[in-house]
Amino acid sequence: MYLVGEGMTGGYGGGDILRDCTIGVEKGEIAVIVGPNGAGKSTAMKAMLGMLRLRLGSVVLDGKNITTLSPQARVAEGIAFVPQTNNVFTGMSVEENLEMGAYLRRDDISGTMEQVFALFPILKEKRRQAAGELSGGQRQQVAVGRALMTRPTVLMLDEPTAGVSPIVMDELFDRILEVRDTGLAILMVEQNARQALNIADRGYVLVGGENWRTGTGHELLANPEVRKSFLGG
C-alpha cells in the first residue's frame, strides 16, 4: 500500500490507546476510519503523521520507512494534514491562506492555485475575502485547498464535516471525491460513518484502539454487525 501504519501500538504516556492497529491507503483511493468515540481514530491518524511515538509497529510511505521521522519531515515527504479545528488563518484572505500553504515551495505556485480554484470555485469567487467571514463549509474548503498547495501525495483529514449541515457535508464529500480523482491517497477520520463509508474505497472500523472490521466502504455498510453497532441498524 502507498501509505501504511502497520501494527501500530502506543499512547500518550499512560496506557496504549492503539493496540496492534493497521491502517493503509493507496493512491487514488479514499480510506475512512470510523468507530465509537474514544476508539483511537484520530490517534491512529496522528501516529501516521508522527504526532504520537509508537511503542511497536511502523509507518511506511511509498516503500520508505518513515517511523522515526518528525511530523515536519513527513510533510516534506508528501503528507498533508487538515486538523478538525483552527485550520484557517481567519484574519487573512482566502488567497493569502492558500499562499501560506505553499510557504515551503521555491517554485511558481500559480498553477497549483488555479487547480485549487478549479476544484473549489467558491474560493476563486471569494479570494479577496477574509477566511474568518466565510461559512463553516467554505472554511473547510480553504483548509483543504491550503493543504493541496503543498502538492502532497497523501491528504489526511480529521473529521472534515464536523459541525456542518447535511447539505454542506454532501458538497464537501463531492469535493473530496474530486481530489481523490486527481490521484491522491486520502485518509480521513469521520463521525458521519454512513455517509463516509458511502464514498470510501476502503474502511476501517476501530474499537478500543484495535481493528474491529475492515473492508470496502460498501462491504462495511452491508455488514449486519457494523450496521447494528454504528449505523443505527
Rank of each mutant, 00 (worst) to 15 (best):
residue 17 I to A: 14
residue 68 T to D: 07
residue 144 V to T: 11
residue 102 A to D: 01
residue 122 I to G: 00
residue 131 A to L: 11
residue 69 L to R: 05
residue 15 G to C: 11
residue 45 M to E: 03
residue 138 Q to G: 05
residue 32 V to I: 13
residue 129 Q to R: 12
residue 89 F to T: 02
residue 14 G to N: 15
residue 58 S to D: 02
residue 123 L to F: 11
residue 114 E to V: 11
residue 89 F to G: 01
residue 38 G to M: 12
residue 15 G to F: 15
residue 39 A to K: 13
residue 82 V to L: 04
residue 118 A to R: 12
residue 60 V to D: 02
residue 147 A to T: 06
residue 38 G to H: 13
residue 112 T to G: 00
residue 79 I to W: 01
residue 115 Q to C: 05
residue 135 S to D: 06
residue 88 V to P: 00
residue 24 G to L: 01
residue 127 R to K: 15
residue 38 G to S: 13
residue 108 D to I: 02
residue 113 M to Q: 10
residue 43 T to W: 14
residue 100 M to G: 01
residue 139 R to E: 13
residue 15 G to I: 15
residue 101 G to Q: 06
residue 60 V to S: 00
residue 98 L to E: 00
residue 19 R to I: 12
residue 9 T to K: 11
residue 93 S to T: 13
residue 143 A to R: 12
residue 47 A to C: 12
residue 79 I to D: 02
residue 14 G to P: 15
residue 148 L to C: 08
residue 105 R to V: 00
residue 37 N to F: 09
residue 39 A to S: 15
residue 57 G to L: 07
residue 14 G to R: 15
residue 63 G to W: 06
residue 62 D to L: 11
residue 148 L to W: 09
residue 83 P to A: 05
residue 153 T to H: 06
residue 31 A to E: 07
residue 54 L to C: 03
residue 152 P to A: 09
residue 124 K to R: 14
residue 7 G to S: 14
residue 86 N to S: 05
residue 10 G to K: 14
residue 147 A to Y: 06
residue 31 A to T: 08
residue 40 G to E: 10
residue 75 V to H: 02
residue 139 R to C: 13
residue 138 Q to V: 06
residue 123 L to E: 05
residue 110 S to V: 00
residue 107 D to R: 06
residue 129 Q to W: 00
residue 61 L to A: 03
residue 53 R to E: 06
residue 75 V to P: 01
residue 48 M to E: 00
residue 36 P to A: 15
residue 104 L to T: 01
residue 58 S to Q: 09
residue 117 F to E: 04
residue 144 V to S: 06
residue 31 A to V: 10
residue 25 V to G: 10
residue 121 P to D: 11
residue 141 Q to L: 12
residue 147 A to C: 08
residue 8 M to V: 04
residue 91 G to T: 08
residue 135 S to T: 11
residue 62 D to V: 06
residue 131 A to H: 08
residue 132 G to F: 11
residue 13 G to C: 12
residue 24 G to A: 09
residue 27 K to Y: 00
residue 56 L to W: 07
residue 136 G to I: 12
residue 15 G to A: 15
residue 13 G to L: 14
residue 11 G to V: 03
